[in-house]
Design a protein around this nucleic acid. Structure first.
Lengths: 221, 221
DNA sequence: AAAATCCGGATTTTCGACAAAATCGCCTTG
DNA sequence: CAAGGCGATTTTGTCGAAAATCCGGATTTT
């Protein structure tokens, strides 16, 4: 899920795998994360696991009251609202910076990522060699491409962790979707607005898109 | 009652102390952080130190290439620019949210923090029982009060770490300041703008204030 | 009965010694 | 001077156990 291709310490591997398991729902919200259990589950010693959990707690995927161990971070409407507000802020800033840099590579990257997303949807619909994980990967790549050229390491890092944190809620939203067309149409519209040359319109389209998970999972108010 | 109430874990204490030592400059940029040395320096074992360094690396105070150990994060103009851009974004968002919540407590808190800052400057000038650390604390409390009531846990966390990361550069700026009056005057103006009721003006004053460290440490361009 | 206290087992946190793997420094060699 | 080898050092991970703390139930007190 989180993008770091090859990290060769066990602790780094553990971070990735635990994020994946939390985001994919295999580790449920508020689930106790006992080192002894994790040792068996991930086949490694206690040290790298503690290190991983410690880092995950500063990233917000895990909670850690002192002497009370680690738990998967809980889910709530308030939390999704907080994630969404932060995502709107981060992606707006990153998008504006990408646009005003008039970096040719940006457009290329966004279009390429969109094409990949389109193709993945197609393969998923025709049932040939693409699963939900592929779709999620392509979706993340698309959103990452939008902010990729903002020039700020911190914005990129924030986007990455916020995207993953939102993924838990996005899964709930996707449950009600057999309508892949609608999913793709939303992103097509977003792409059009991004490439349209009007910064304000692009930002609006993006923030609207981000609100979609929120209003879709918690329709009230 | 217990003699020494250890509410916290050693690892948490280590995080705080190392941040302090990095921010205060006692641990210089790019300095190697060898566990063996730190064990002696902080009087604790390797486990809590590794955990602390690991967390600090995700917070951005420390770098950590795999199998190459930990180092104090380097300083650069690009880094300060990144910090500043992120601070403008975060504090702008937090300020706007605090304002639109029309929370009485917000004004009270901001004014109280300003008063504390004012008094600390006064005591510092008359040389009675206040040192640089006190001023630093009061300054941080003032800026924290501005964003305190935004209602977003993530914004608060971001503000906190970004503030601390900026502190290393602020120290350089302060070197050239014997003029406490100017320092205080800047904050007085900021306070006025914040309380003036004009959101746009308040945001502008705040972002200008944040730019001050940047332009002061790196005057070129 | 309700509240406070106590107690024993379980869990978390920390320690320290050790082993494996990777990196670094230095030296030689071509 | 570049390239490569080879110990020495450092980092990373394992293991077992000690110290501190939490949890839940039983007991005592109000």
């Amino acid at each position: 899920m989180a993008d770091t291709p090859t990290e060769d310490t066990l602790a780094n591997v553990a971070v990735q795998r635990i994020i994946d398991d939390i985001v994919s729902g295999q580790l449920e919200p508020c689930a106790k994360l006992r080192i002894e259990s994790l040792k068996e589950q991930y086949g490694m010693g206690a040290s790298p696991l503690r290190e991983a959990l410690s880092r995950l707690s500063t990233l917000g995927f895990v909670t850690n009251e002192s002497h009370r161990g680690f738990r998967v971070a809980p889910m709530s409407q308030a939390d999704l609202e907080d994630i969404t507000l932060n995502r709107r802020m981060v992606e707006r800033e990153a998008l504006l910076r990408s646009l005003t840099r008039d970096d040719d590579e940006w457009e290329v990257g966004v279009v390429a990522a969109y094409t990949r997303l389109e193709r993945t949807v197609e393969r998923l619909r025709t049932g040939q060699g693409a699963d939900g994980a592929d779709l999620e990967r392509a979706h993340k790549q698309f959103h990452t491409a939008i902010v990729a050229h903002c020039g700020s390491p911190r914005l990129l890092g924030l986007h990455d962790t916020l995207y993953d944190q939102a993924q838990r809620y996005r899964r709930l939203m996707m449950r009600g979707i057999q309508d892949l067309d609608e999913f793709l149409a939303h992103h097509t519209a977003l792409l059009k607005a991004l490439l349209g040359g009007d910064a304000d319109a692009a930002v609006h389209a993006l923030t609207d898109h981000l609100n979609l998970t929120l209003t879709s999972v918690y329709p009230n108010d």
